[in-house]
């Protein structure tokens, strides 16, 4: 197990490097000069002097390998560069906002698992029955509704019409834990709706598949009690693909919370990212993309390790 963990970690480190390099290359090798692009908003040809100045400011006039070296060197020191607009260090802003985004994702994942897993198991054990059919249709629809539609409707109904909660925002946990959680609930539930549907579907099909396996029949032939068969033989094996799919979706959410944070005014990474994209503030966009992608890679590493923990065969692969 340890050897496997080490091997996977090395691969993940390599991927982190690949991601960092890709981010660097995207900005430096795409056709067109970023400085020129940045200044050419509004359809006017930019002033060459201004472009040259910006190039120097961005360090774009240095040879590529030198730029790459200082970029990687900066990363190793946790330096993600500075905003073009206000010189604010990108790393600092990310450090402030990232935990809020992660909290939102974690809360959504928790809700999704709490609802999706038991309901998926139930539907599989009663496959074809009325409960299964109703749940499957419900899941199909929940998966299809875009998250910002759900969010907007949630705000309309619960905040505007019923006035149960305020329309969104954020209160630090340290200031008022209850209000913090109350404000977390709406965006988390919005994300969780679609995610729970994914967990539900995956759990259902995975359990159905495992139920047909020979070792389940063998366990029955041993006279093992039904509940123990479900818990001990079925769920653990069925969980393996569920974990993978859930993690994949969580990774997608790292970028996908943008919409929900926007709808609910949740001050995570997204507001920052959307503003940066609108202003074409390269260092900010690069920094956020890099951090999230690295998290994405690390998440996949965590999944691989969890996978190995659940399935002893993987450790030797």
């Amino acid at each position: 197990m340890l050897g496997y963990a080490v091997r996977r970690s090395v691969v993940a480190l390599g991927l982190v490097w690949v991601v960092a390099t890709l981010v660097f290359l995207v900005i430096h090798l795409i056709p067109g000069d970023p400085a020129e692009l940045l200044l050419s908003q509004g359809g006017f040809a930019p002033d060459p002097a201004a472009v040259a100045e910006l190039r120097t400011q961005l360090g774009l006039d240095r040879p590529l390998p030198v730029q790459y070296g200082s970029y990687i060197g900066g990363l190793l020191h946790g330096d993600l560069g500075h905003s073009l607009l206000d010189e604010h260090p990108v790393a600092e802003e990310i450090a402030l906002r990232l935990p809020r985004t992660l909290e939102l994702i974690a809360a959504a994942a928790l809700l999704a698992v709490v609802f999706g897993l038991p309901l998926g198991t139930l539907a599989a054990l009663r496959a074809g029955g009325p409960a299964d059919r109703a749940l499957s249709v419900l899941a199909g629809v929940s998966m299809s509704v875009p998250v910002f539609v759900v969010g907007t409707l949630v705000v309309l109904v619960f905040a505007q019409k019923l006035r149960w909660v305020s329309a969104g925002g954020f209160t630090p946990f340290s200031r008022d834990p209850l209000e913090h959680l109350a404000l977390l609930a709406m965006p988390a539930a919005t994300i969780a709706l679609g995610l729970a549907a994914v967990v539900f579907r995956m759990t259902r099909s995975s359990i159905l598949e495992v139920l047909g396996r020979d070792y389940v029949r063998t366990a029955m032939a041993k006279g093992v009690a039904p509940l123990r068969i479900v818990v001990h033989h079925v769920i653990r094996n069925a969980l393996i693909p569920v974990v993978t799919v859930l993690a994949l979706h969580l990774g997608t959410l790292l970028g996908g919370t943008v919409l929900v944070e926007y709808v609910f005014n949740w001050p995570g990474l997204s507001g920052y990212l959307v503003n940066a994209v609108e202003a074409r503030d390269y260092p900010e966009v690069m920094g956020i993309v890099l951090v999230i992608s690295v998290l994405f890679v690390l998440l996949n590493l965590a999944v691989d390790l969890l996978y190995a923990l659940l399935d002893p065969r993987v450790r030797h692969a």
Partner: peptide, 17 residues
């Protein structure tokens, strides 16, 4: 390699460019 990036994020990156 594209799959190393969360999809919406990559789309935003392209929009930036």
């Amino acid at each position: 390699a594209v799959l190393c990036f969360p999809p919406l994020l990559l789309a935003l990156l392209v929009v930036t460019l």
